[in-house]
Design a protein around this nucleic acid. Structure first.
Lengths: 190, 190
DNA sequence: CTCACAGTACACCGATCTGTTTCCTAGCGC
DNA sequence: GCGCTAGGAAACAGATCGGTGTACTGTGAG
């Protein structure tokens, strides 16, 4: 059991930063607002992170695993790959319908930060590659003809469905499932 | 033949704004920079557009048709719908491989501007709906089982492929074509 | 020629941005 | 009690933001 102690200033900053950046965008949120929302002085923020860019990157990094957890199963169970993949897209549908949904933090970060060298972009990309690796593993397990290709197709549709939801033209869950089945069938995935 | 006259200040502002906003992001570009790049005084900018938000919206609006033209055919010819749809994705592949490519301006605008009431968001959404309508028309022409569903699936994959390209994990053209074929086959599109 | 107007140049406004510095205080080991 | 340190509050710095106000200038129509 973890004690219900007061969270460390660092953790409060991470939480506040992740929430605000996600809800309002990175550029639209200043460090003053973050420190205010965290109930932590700006001085401490800079002691801890050194710069806003680092705060952005580290908050995304620490929250990233939890975001992946929204649609990826924790235990790599032995359910058929086809079911696992479809389940991922099922959870995606739930996520995009949740209130407060504002898209995928990774995609948002990548599109908002034009500088390719920004540390947060690295973080975002790495997490997306993890999802890609998950798809690829399942595709290989299911004896896909070309697991890498199938994984990229799945990821593309995954991100596309997210963008559609943000745009207010979300696909209904059945349409998503049908599309995924079509992609899986095309490679005769078990 | 159009005379090669000096473009009007308004047009120069539109051009500069569209280019800068696309390349560096809306939030990252100030009105001073736009007016400087256009070789037009800031005073004129505000006489013409009234606010930055309006400049953003109107520049996207005036450039939007040209962007759609990158992948949509101008003449609604009578080629088989299947070919037309595949051709759209072929041009998409060329576009994402072009240098200076920084994603889809419509998607970028929608994800960067969190305020749902921003005029530029309306514009971006409208253009995306035009592409959706195109897919839907072709799907209906090809006797798709559910044209609306197929159109949304295609648009999702379209946007997803764009996001992948921005992230540096672009699908190769063959993988895109194969995925689209799978979606079309699932609805027995002619 | 002259007048009206479109546009320029540029200083300026208040607000906000990232980031720094200073001073103060609460708590804790010794 | 005593000193050390972590952290808070807030002023500050310098830059930049969106947006205005003002005085000037080139040019074309009458």
């Amino acid at each position: 059991m973890s004690q219900a102690t007061t969270p460390t200033p660092r953790q409060r900053l991470i939480d506040a930063a992740a929430g605000l950046f996600y809800q309002q965008g990175i550029g639209a949120v200043g460090v003053d607002l973050v420190s205010k929302a965290a109930g932590v002085s700006k001085r401490t923020l800079y002691m801890e992170f050194g710069s806003k860019d680092q705060l952005v990157a580290q908050s995304l990094d620490e929250k990233g695993a939890g975001i992946l957890g929204i649609y990826l199963p924790e235990g790599d169970d032995d359910a058929p790959p086809r079911e696992q993949i479809l389940a991922v897209f099922g959870r995606l549908s739930e996520w995009t319908a949740a209130e407060g949904y504002r898209g995928c933090p990774f995609i948002n970060t990548i599109t908002e930060l034009s500088d390719p060298g920004h540390p947060a972009r690295r973080v975002a990309r790495e997490y997306k590659l993890r999802l890609l690796a998950y798809f690829e593993r399942q595709a290989a397990r299911g004896s896909a003809a070309d697991p890498q290709r199938l994984a990229r197709q799945l990821l593309a549709f995954f991100d596309g469905a997210i963008v559609q939801a943000v745009m207010g033209t979300a696909l209904d869950p059945a349409a998503i499932q049908a599309a995924i089945e079509a992609l899986l069938d095309a490679q005769a995935l078990r």
